[in-house]
Design a binder for these strands. Structure first.
Lengths: 342, 342
DNA sequence: AACCTTACCGCAAACGTTTGCGGTATTTTC
DNA sequence: GAAAATACCGCAAACGTTTGCGGTAAGGTT
C-alpha cells in the first residue's frame, strides 16, 4: 500500500536521462529521438506512470476544475442540472468539484473559501436557504467567475433562472379556472427568494381575479416530506374550506398528499394539489401530480456556458438568463368529467 | 476578473518581511512576535488572502481528498450513500471528488487514471454496468486504497454490499406465499453482478418451492423507466399467465407499473409487482410499491470507514462487509382481504 | 578547412507553500 | 561585565512538472 507512484525522476534515473528529456519524450516532442521515446514509453507502461497533477496544477496556477455548490444532490433537479454542467465542462476539459451545503449558509461560506484555495476556474452555485447573509458571494463577484442558477440572492451577478413568478401565476390561474376559490400555498423557507417570488405570483394572480386569501393559508416548510405532511395536516384541519394547495416542490406536495390521504377528502374535487419540478414519479402517484416542469439540465448547461464566457473574458459578470417552465396538468388538479368510467 | 489571488510573497514584500515569517505568523507560530502577527493578519484580511492549496498539496504529496465513483448521482441510492461517505470523510478532514460514469466502463477507467493523477488518498467505487473488463481495478488493488460498495466485480478487494441473494430470495418467497405461481424477473444489464445475484436468489427460491419458471420470463433492461415499460409491455402481452414481477430497482418497477396500467389488470390480484431500493415515492404510488429497503447511507459510511483503515494501514485490502436489507411489504403485492372498506 | 545545419539532450527557473536550521539582536543571569 | 538564555526572523530545500535556452556532436556545405 505504501507503493509510491513513479515520477519523471524515477524514469530518468533508470534510463540515464534527464527529467526534461523524459518529460518531452512522453509528450512526443520532436526534439527527442524515436529510440529514446520508445525506451521511455516502455518504462512508463511498466511502472504505470501517472503524471502528478498537483505539480502541473501548481505550475499552471489552476486546478483545471470548476466548483459546483448545491443544497443537496439528492434533489432531483440538482442531479439533472449537474449533468448539464458536466456536459458543458467536458468540452473545455474541466472537471467538476461538487459540494453540498445541506441548506447551511455557514457551510456555503466555508465551501467558497475551500474552492478559492483550490484555485478552481470558477464557481456555479444554487444558494442555500439557510440565511440572508450573502457577504461570501459579494466578496468575490466582479473579481472571480461566478454564476447563480435556479436559486439566486440579492447579489448583482450572472444568473440562470426560470420565471418563477409567471410559473406560480399560471398554476394559480389554472386552479382558479377549475373553480377553486380557497387556495393555499405551501412555501419553502422564508429566506428562500424563489419561494417568495412564487408566493408573489400566487398572490398577484388571486388579486387579479379578485379572490380573497388568508395569511394563514400561506405556510412555510423545510424541505422534507415529513415536515410538509405535518404542516398540511394541521392546516386542513384548521381550515377545512381550503379546496386547493400549491406546494413549493413536488417533495412537499407528496408530503401534503400523505396528510390529505389520511382524511376522507377526494382529490381533486375536495382539494386539488400541485407542485414544482415534475419529478419522474409524479405521473405514477395517485392521483398523478400536476406540476411545473423545469428545464434543469438546460439550466445547468447554460450556467456553465455563462461561466466559461466569464473565464475567457468574453462575457459580462452579470448576464441574466430566464428559461421557460411548463405547466403539466394531471389528475391531482383536474378530472375529466366526461370520462366514461366515472 | 484578472485579479490574481494574493500570495505570501505579496504580503511579505508589502511588510518588508520574509515569506517564512509571514507563513509562520498566519499559522500562529510562537517564534513570531504578536506585533508582527497582527500586522500580517491585518493585511491577510484586507487582501482576502487564501493559501494556495495547489502548492500545499504538492508539498504534502496528496490532494486531501478521496475519489467517489458512481454510475449516476441521479440514482437515489447513490445520493444517499454519498452523504454517508461525506459524513465519515469530514471526520478525517478530507473532501470528496464525485465522479459519474454513466454506466460506461471506458469512462470509469479514465476516471481512475484522473483520480490517480490527482493523488487522491483513496477511491470508493460502485462499478458501472457497461462491461466485463475490470483491469483498471485489478491494476491498482493491493497498491492503492480501494473499496467497492453496492455493486462489485470479480476483483479481490474490500467490499460493502447487501445480501442480494437473500433479499431476492425473501422477496420471491413472499410472492409465493401470497399464492403467485408465475413469477417473472426484470433484471438489470447482464453484465451487472448484483443483478445476477438477485436473479440467482429468485431462481433458487422457485426451485426450493418446486415452482417452474421460463427463461423468457427473465428479461434484462437498461436503467430507464421507458426501457422497462416497453420490455414489460411485450412481456405481459406475450405471457398473460404471468401473475407477479420482481424488478431490479424501483425505477424499473415504475416503468413496469406504467406498462401494466395500460391494460385492465388489477394490482396485485392479476399481477403483483415489487422492486428494490425503497425510494421515497414508493408509498405514494398507486398501488404503493413493495420494495427492498437498503441501508444506503450506512453502506457509504461503512465503505469510507474501510477506506480510511486502508489509508492508515490499519486494515486489510480485502475486508468484506455485508449489510442487511429489509423487505417492505405494500399493496402492490399484498392486499388485506379483511379490510372493512372493500 | 572553416562554417553551417541538424538532431538530440540537459540545465535551471518557475509555480507557492512549509519547515529545519542557523543567525542576530536583546535580555537575563550570576 | 561576561556568559547564557531568549526572542525573533531569514535562508534554503523540497514537492514534480513544464519549457526556454544553451550546448554538443555528427554530418553537410562551400
Amino acid at each position: 500500500m505504501k507503493n509510491k507512484i513513479a515520477t519523471l525522476k524515477d524514469i530518468a534515473d533508470k534510463l540515464g536521462l534527464s527529467i526534461s528529456t523524459v518529460s518531452r519524450a512522453i509528450s512526443d516532442h520532436p526534439d527527442i529521438s524515436e529510440q529514446t521515446k520508445s525506451r521511455v514509453m516502455k518504462l512508463v507502461k511498466r511502472l504505470d506512470y501517472q503524471p502528478n497533477q498537483l505539480a502541473i496544477n501548481l505550475l499552471n496556477q489552476q486546478s483545471n476544475s470548476i466548483g459546483v455548490i448545491v443544497p443537496s444532490i439528492a434533489y432531483y433537479l440538482y442531479a439533472s442540472a449537474i449533468s448539464g454542467i458536466e456536459q458543458e465542462a467536458e468540452k473545455h476539459g474541466l472537471k467538476l468539484i461538487i459540494c453540498q451545503t445541506n441548506e447551511s449558509v455557514q457551510r456555503e461560506s466555508e465551501i467558497i473559501n475551500e474552492l478559492l484555495r483550490m484555485r478552481v476556474a470558477g464557481i456555479i452555485v444554487s444558494v442555500s436557504s439557510g440565511g440572508r447573509d450573502f457577504t461570501h458571494f459579494k466578496r468575490i463577484v466582479k473579481r472571480f467567475p461566478l454564476v447563480f442558477f435556479n436559486r439566486d440572492c440579492s447579489v448583482n451577478a450572472s444568473k440562470v433562472m426560470i420565471n418563477n413568478h409567471k410559473a406560480a401565476y399560471d398554476l394559480t390561474q389554472h386552479l382558479v379556472e377549475t373553480g377553486k376559490r380557497h387556495i393555499s400555498f405551501l412555501a419553502g423557507p422564508k429566506t428562500l427568494q424563489i419561494s417568495n417570488k412564487r408566493k408573489k405570483g400566487y398572490l398577484d394572480c388571486l388579486e387579479d381575479f379578485g379572490i380573497e386569501t388568508q395569511k394563514e393559508w400561506v405556510c412555510h416548510s423545510p424541505f422534507s416530506q415529513i415536515s410538509a405532511m405535518n404542516i398540511v395536516d394541521t392546516l386542513i384541519r384548521k381550515y377545512p374550506e381550503i379546496d386547493a394547495l400549491i406546494a413549493f416542490s413536488d417533495q412537499l406536495a407528496m408530503g401534503a398528499l400523505k396528510a390529505i390521504k389520511k382524511y376522507q377528502k377526494s382529490i381533486p374535487d375536495d382539494i386539488a394539489i400541485a407542485g414544482f419540478n415534475n419529478e419522474p414519479a409524479d405521473e405514477l402517484l395517485e392521483p398523478p401530480l400536476t406540476s411545473i416542469e423545469q428545464p434543469a439540465f438546460e439550466m445547468g448547461r447554460k450556467a456553465a456556458e455563462l461561466l466559461f464566457n466569464q473565464i475567457h473574458q468574453t462575457g459580462k459578470y452579470n448576464e441574466q438568463v430566464v428559461l421557460n417552465s411548463r405547466l403539466i396538468i394531471r389528475r391531482s388538479t383536474w378530472q375529466e368529467t366526461t370520462k366514461p368510467e366515472r
